[in-house]
Nucleic acid binder design. Structure first.
Lengths: 145, 145
DNA sequence: TCAAACTCTCAAGTTCACCTGAACTCAAAC
DNA sequence: GTTTGAGTTCAGGTGAACTTGAGAGTTTGA
C-alpha cells in the first residue's frame, strides 16, 4: 500500500461499492489514473472527493448537481478547506427548508390527530391557506405554505 | 355534477394527475365504479383516500406501504377519524427520525465550516464515532451515529 | 350538430443511482 | 505454478412512481 489506492481499497475506506465508484467515474465525478495493467489507481485526495459526494447526496443534491458544484471549482480540483466552507454553507438553506417542511408536516399531523377530517376543504394539512390544487399539479403543494 | 366525480374532476380537486390516479388504481390504492360508457366514477370519499396517500408519501412511505396500511383497515375502508389518528400517530417517530437526521447533518456541517478537513480519519461529519466503513456498505452510515 | 375536450386501454418510455452478469485479464499467496 | 480473488469492459437490469403515445370511444357546450 503506497500512496495510491486500488478500487477495492477506496471502496473499503469510503463504504461506496466498486460499481458505484466506476459509475461516478463515468459521470465525471471522480477520476482515476491507471496502472500498466489497466487497473485504476486513486490518489489519496479522491477519498475526500468521494466523501464530498456522499455528504452532498445526503443534503439532497443529485449527482449532476454535485458534478456541477465540483466543476465550478478552479482547476476542477478536489474541494479544499475554503471550497468546502463555501459549498457547505450554500447547502444550509436547503437543509433548513427540508427540516422546516418536515416540522410543519409533523405539527400539522399533531394538530389533526383529534380532527380526522382529511377534507380538502377544511383540513389544515391539506389546505394550509385554503388554496387547494391551484398551484399546479404535483404532490408537493401540500407542504409549501 | 352529482355526488360522483370524473377522473378529471378528481385530478382537479386533489392535484394528482389522471395518469397517476389510474396508476393508483392499478396498484390497488383506490377503486372506481364505472359508468355505462366505461368511464370511471368516483364517490366523494375517494378524495380523502387520495389525500391520505399524498400525506403518507410526504412522510416517506412507499405506495406499497400505504397500500398495506390501508388494507389493514377493517373492510379495507377509507380511513376514518380514528384510523387517521392511529396511523398518523404511528408516523411520528418516522418524521422525528428524519428531522433529527437532517438536524444532525446541519449541525455537523456548521461545525466543519471552519474545519474543511473532510478527512475520513478526523472529520466529525464522516466519523461521528470514529467507526468508518465498518457498518457495512451504503451511503447511510454517515448519519446513523 | 359537431368540434373540442375528455376518457378509455395497453404497452412502452422516463429518471435516478446504481447493480448484475458475462467473458475476460491480472496479481498475489501458498 | 497454480489457484483464487480482485480487476477490466460493456450491455442490460432494477425499482419506484409515474408519464407518454397510439388509437379508439364519449361527453359537453356553443
Amino acid at each position: 500500500m503506497g500512496s495510491h489506492l486500488t478500487i477495492g481499497g477506496l471502496a473499503a475506506r469510503t463504504g461506496v461499492a466498486t460499481s458505484a465508484l466506476r459509475f461516478y467515474e463515468s459521470q465525471g465525478l471522480i477520476h482515476a489514473e491507471r496502472a500498466e495493467s489497466g487497473h485504476r489507481r486513486y490518489p489519496h485526495a479522491v477519498i475526500r472527493r468521494v466523501s464530498f459526494i456522499k455528504i452532498a447526496q445526503e443534503v439532497g443534491l443529485t449527482l449532476q448537481e454535485i458534478a456541477e458544484a465540483m466543476s465550478s471549482l478552479p482547476d476542477n480540483r478536489t474541494p479544499d478547506q475554503e471550497d468546502w466552507a463555501r459549498l457547505s454553507a450554500s447547502w444550509r438553506p436547503r437543509l433548513d427548508d427540508q427540516i422546516a417542511m418536515l416540522q410543519r408536516l409533523r405539527d400539522r399531523l399533531d394538530g389533526c390527530i383529534g380532527c380526522g377530517c382529511l377534507s380538502l376543504k377544511k383540513c389544515a394539512i391539506l389546505n394550509p391557506g385554503d388554496i387547494a390544487g391551484e398551484r399546479g399539479p404535483g404532490p408537493r403543494y401540500i407542504l409549501e405554505g
